[in-house]
Amino acid sequence: MYSFDYERPSGVNEAVSAVGEDDKFLAGGQTLLPTLKLRLAQADKLIDLGGIAELKGISVSGSELSIGAMTRHVDVANSADVKSAIPALSHLASHIGDAQVRNRGTIGGSIANNDPAADYPAALVGLGATVHTDKRSISAEDFFIDLFETALEEDELVTKVTFPIPEKAGYAKFPNPASRFALTGVFVAQTAQGVRVAVTGAGPCVFRQTDMEAALSSNFSAEAVSGIKTEASGLSADIHASADYRANLISVMAARAVQAAS
């Protein structure tokens, strides 16, 4: 770790006005702190968002579930509101990383990092969520741009995520045996706007599987998607899984997500 300055503001405006060119926001720190410790990242100043009360909390109003950016995975997993509104989201949060990660990591930190194997991007895109920042609102599909790349500007801060409550949804994840990130995770949702299928872990960035969406629109069943193949070219390959295998996992996990949907 290189040395850095540290600030802990108590409001969003204060946080945003404090951030300089080589500074970083610190949310749960589950990615940032290890990379700092390994000297793979460097910051002049860390702006710890942990003291900003307005960024935390979960609420339901009408047809929308709202989760503050600094809400921890464990709180999403255990929330009665989330369990009742979108049980698949609670299930997803309860399987992120391990207990230590879930006790520190936050939804805002996760999506702002946009790790290609993170779980939350699948839920956001699968549910057609909206990311709210201190400056604007961005649809999930416009928010996640590419590998570790989002629509966020340097000094822009995620404040909350709002999810339209679906008719039903399911998430199935094949964890990387070592890291327990999603080697491939598929989120399916039946929503007022139609069926959505979002895939994380398999490619450089979360994406929608439109062939599966079409098939599920006419027949929302595991059988409808288990035979639909995803083109392997463009998918990720590493020591844990080839692109072919990930393509297979998309079909298998999609079917299991449909089966689990509630």
Binding site: A178, S179, I239
Partner: peptide, 10 residues
Amino acid sequence: ITGSYMDYCM
């Protein structure tokens, strides 16, 4: 390649 617990599976 397996230089951390992200890739070396215990």
